[in-house]
Nucleic acid binder design. Structure first.
Lengths: 120, 120
DNA sequence: TGAACATATGAGCAACCGTTCATATGAACA
DNA sequence: TGTTCATATGAACGGTTGCTCATATGTTCA
């Protein structure tokens, strides 16, 4: 039960001023939370999640991924560009073929943490 | 170095057929990955991330959150509805006031896992 | 060098999303 | 009971996003 005094009407100021002040003090920096939402945004598309899980199993070239997911080479390439921009995947060139793989195992940890919540 | 034979031209079938088949076998169910992307979608908005971090610090009513984040009561209420639909927050009513809190500590784990990646 | 091929990329479009605005709901208090 | 107030919600609008299509880039090989 919250016992802080009702300071003002809600549509003007706050109801529980002390609670709001306490939370405001302890909140992480707004910029960090903005970056955090941006990070999750990358994980919020089915195609990208599928790509990341595929790359966790094996490094793959663009064409293989396109065939695995039954999608256009262009669509996959666009998504890989996004994943690379935020350093979730890295790539290496071997002749004409470009192989992609996960940038680090942190990526998998984030995926798995969410996955655990989904399969329950 | 991947040593599988080049089976077909890329724009028709696959390059590394064995790799694609192996990955296809080991991939999590497509439906799970779809749900996973949907879960991350909820975390992919700054407003919702701020709400979740705030609720981790203290249960709060709609009006307090609106004031904390300097946003409309309506906007916050819409977002809380989304968070409740996917069971990330719960609420209790006390008279006219509705207090929201995190549904479980799994939510914080997902946030923190991402946060660790952001602040590095 | 020129043809073939894997990949990258820019423009454009349709679908989705988060906000605002107006209004409805539901509880308290006079 | 009627007014007040906290919250909920539907419609609408502007911005974002993921795909397609066309084309560019860069490497190989004849």
């Amino acid at each position: 039960m919250i016992d802080s005094n009702f300071v003002e009407r809600c549509d003007n100021v706050v109801i529980h001023e002390d609670v709001v002040n306490k939370v405001r003090d302890q909140m992480p920096e707004a910029e960090h939370l903005y970056d955090l939402a941006d990070l999750f945004k990358v994980f919020s598309d089915t195609t990208r999640v599928q790509i990341l899980y595929a790359l966790d199993l094996s490094e793959m070239c663009v064409c293989d991924i396109a065939n695995l997911l039954n999608m256009t080479q262009s669509a996959i390439s666009h998504q890989l560009r996004i994943l690379k921009q935020v350093s979730l995947v890295k790539n290496r060139r071997d002749g004409r073929v470009v192989y992609y793989s996960l940038a680090d195992d942190h990526v998998k940890k984030i995926l798995d943490q969410g996955f655990a919540h989904v399969i329950e």
